[in-house]
């Protein structure tokens, strides 16, 4: 599968550092909730009914075993031992605490994952058919195109404040996987 370039790595690390600082400033009162809310949402951290929720992008639904183990580690260390896979091929942790969010994002960055653009009026995680590269009736593997779109849309300066969220789906097969 695709591995981060140096550029991807540096970008994700810089966002973790930035968010670590933002959480610290929220907790010491130098950022108000109105100021902080858009910043946490840019990093996939929602405040839900009973707790915070962190939505982590799984680009076009593809994971390595190492990444899956790291999700398990995060679930055990900072959540309640489980994760919820969503209808957009992402994973949500339902019980993170705000002071732990930077450490969780750091643990995700260790395995080339992040929660960027999982919220807000941006291009969200590109979805692809989950049988890509394996199914018999495929014309071409959609994942390289999905990865190209991911790289292009991540932090794209023109498309960080779209009128509304924007979702792209790509399939390499004219027929939908069952």
């Amino acid at each position: 599968m695709y591995s981060y370039s140096d550029f991807d790595e540096a970008f994700v690390r810089s966002r973790v550092a930035q968010f670590t600082d933002q959480v610290a400033r929220r907790l010491d009162g130098s950022l108000s909730e109105d100021e902080f809310r858009p910043l946490r949402l840019m990093n996939g951290l929602y405040l839900q009914l009973h707790a915070y929720m962190l939505r982590v992008a799984i680009p076009y639904g593809t994971l390595s075993p190492r990444q899956m183990r790291q999700l398990a580690f995060i679930a055990d260390t900072w959540d309640k031992g489980y994760g919820h896979f969503t209808t957009r091929q992402n994973i949500q942790f339902n019980w993170p605490k705000l002071p732990d969010a930077p450490a969780i994002l750091g643990a995700l960055a260790d395995v080339e994952m992040h929660a960027i653009q999982t919220s807000g009026n941006t291009v969200r995680n590109v979805t692809a058919d989950h049988f890509a590269g394996a199914t018999a009736d495929e014309i071409d593997d959609p994942r390289p195109y999905a990865e190209l779109l991911r790289q292009w849309s991540t932090d794209h300066p023109e498309f960080q404040f779209l009128p509304r969220k924007f979702k792209i789906a790509i399939t390499g097969s004219p027929v939908t996987a069952p």
Partner: peptide
């Protein structure tokens, strides 16, 4: 999925699945 299930799936992907995993919608 529980964390144990995630680890088991990761192990099985390595052993039997060419280390490839997907999440479906």
């Amino acid at each position: 999925a529980t964390s144990d299930q995630m680890r088991i799936i990761a192990d099985l992907a390595e052993r039997y699945g060419h280390s490839d995993l997907r999440i479906s919608h």
